[in-house]
Design a protein around this nucleic acid. Structure first.
Lengths: 143, 143
DNA sequence: CTGAATTACTTAACATGTTTAGCAAAATGA
DNA sequence: TCATTTTGCTAAACATGTTAAGTAATTCAG
């Protein structure tokens, strides 16, 4: 028998994510960015010059998705790309002045949303949730 | 400053979901079904005749997505649809014999995967995670 | 009863998720 | 060194996510 939807882990994860991302998406749409574009932009700013494979890892995206996102961000002139001199398979991605400005204009509201979530839930439970999610991510389900 | 990715709630939710759904997707692809198609099929079987709005609610899908999914499931003859006699805006969705067979063929392995996750994580922590996710889902972030 | 909401979907458009294939550069090994 | 494999990324195809419009049926206010 199927568990009630609130006891189904996949659906509970889906709903929780939607609850958290809804307000963030609303904020970012005002800046003309999607959630994923925002994530990539922030990774690039925080890390400095970085290649797509590492971006994908940090932003939790698959490379085919990232390819399209980088193309969009480059069109919008929020990032720049060039080939790596040492290894010409690779690219070096950098944030532009415009990209940095977009982050500066939205970062406070974004962090405020997460802080509000944390406060409403209670810091201890919020941290406990993060711990459990990370634990779940590290489980080996293969055997 | 951006939290490390494992302390970012949106990314932690993303990774956890991917970890849980990966094996389930692999199982279902053998049956020619996507994760969402499977979710819809199960909701319809468990509920009996049901309209799309309720399916969307239970399966945690938006109506535009559900419209396409129902079309695919109808093509595959796993569900049937007809207009509601009382309210002709509505539809009544039913599972077909073929749909019931697909569920019967895959339900055991599907439940087994979730049970394995639960066991590896420990039943108590698993339940605690579900509780925290549901709590997060019920937070009012508007104010 | 009738025109203005409202409801239950459907369609369309754009972005991402997911899988598979492809290509060029670099590393490997006989 | 040269064929093979691996790596880093891109392209394509199909499915879903998300938002905005559109349509037909129903409800509601006046």
């Amino acid at each position: 028998m199927m568990p009630a939807t609130d006891r189904s882990l996949p659906i509970a994860l889906l709903r929780a994510r939607e609850r958290v991302m809804g307000p963030i998406r609303a904020l970012l749409s005002g800046a003309g960015l999607t959630e994923q574009q925002w994530r990539v932009l922030r990774v690039v700013q925080e890390s400095g010059p970085i290649d797509p494979t590492q971006i994908a890892d940090k932003a939790c995206l698959l490379l085919p998705s990232l390819t399209r996102i980088l193309q969009k961000l480059e069109e919008k002139q929020l990032i720049s790309r060039e080939r790596d001199r040492q290894d010409r398979r690779r690219q070096v991605v950098r944030i532009t002045t415009g990209g940095a400005r977009v982050i500066a204009d939205n970062i406070d509201a974004s962090l405020e949303l997460m802080n509000r979530t944390r406060a409403k839930m209670g810091p201890e439970r919020y941290e406990a949730l993060l711990d459990l999610l990370n634990e779940l991510d590290q489980i080996d389900l293969s055997g």
